[in-house]
Amino acid sequence: MHYAILAYHEEDIVQSWSPDEDEALMTDLLKVNDRLVAEGKLGPAARLGATADAVTLRGPGKGVVLDGPFAETKEQLLGLYVVDAQSRDEAVAIARDLRWANPTAVYEIRPILLYIPGAPLAGAEAPSAETV
């Protein structure tokens, strides 16, 4: 079963990291990512841009575009991972590995009810059947 692991953090803290601090964190996260890819458990993963650059589409018809997300939370959704795990416990274990690399983040683990691999991103190669 596929699970989404949603990574939350206080955006102001993340943005305050120096380039060296950010690079060190990404090095540790990529160690976990590389292991999960080698195990065939990691699907798409993304680090999201700043919430200040986000918009929300809501309302009837064509909807209205509003500046930014409006969640009343201390942490913001800053990234996500799609993993292929046999159980929720295994997905939690994977999230714990990610937390090892980024111990101040909060991870939400949620089952994915429908997973449709999409077209590759512009400039990226299409995923092979083995990686999906």
Rank of each mutant, 00 (worst) to 15 (best):
R58M: 02
L121P: 01
F70R: 02
A46F: 08
T104N: 15
V32S: 07
E130A: 15
T131N: 11
A129N: 08
K62N: 11
S18G: 06
Q76A: 13
E10G: 03
I13P: 00
L114C: 09
Y81G: 06
R96K: 14
G40P: 00
I116Q: 10
A126S: 08
P103H: 05
A50T: 10
R110S: 09
I13V: 12
L77C: 06
E10C: 09
S87N: 11
D34A: 14
D28E: 15
D22N: 14
N33K: 05
N33M: 01
D12F: 05
Y115E: 05
D34E: 12
V65A: 11
P103Q: 02
L98D: 07
G40T: 04
K62Q: 05
A124P: 00
G40K: 02
L42Y: 03
L98I: 13
R110P: 04
G63I: 02
A7L: 11
I94C: 12
D89M: 04
P127Q: 04
T73K: 00
A101W: 01
A85P: 08
Y107S: 15
A45V: 14
T56I: 09
T73W: 00
S16V: 03
E108V: 08
E72P: 08
L121A: 13
A7F: 00
P103D: 07
N33W: 02
R110W: 06
L57P: 05
D12W: 02
Q76F: 03
L80Q: 07
E72H: 01
A129R: 09
G118P: 02
L30M: 13
K31C: 01
A129Q: 12
A122Y: 14
K41D: 00
A45F: 08
I116T: 12
A119I: 06
A4P: 01
G68Y: 03
G118I: 03
L78N: 07
F70S: 10
A95S: 15
E10D: 12
G118Q: 00
E21M: 11
R47A: 09
Y8P: 05
D89E: 15
Y107F: 15
E21F: 07
A45T: 13
E75K: 02
A54N: 09
T56K: 03
E90T: 10
G123Q: 05
R99E: 14
I13D: 11
V32N: 06
A46W: 05
A46K: 12
L42I: 07
D22W: 15
M26K: 10
D67R: 04
D67S: 06
R35P: 00
E108K: 05
L36E: 10
I112S: 10
P103C: 06
L30F: 13
E75G: 02
L42C: 07
E72T: 09
A50F: 05
L36P: 10
T73P: 00
N33A: 05
A71P: 04
A85E: 04
D22Q: 13
V64Y: 01
A50D: 10
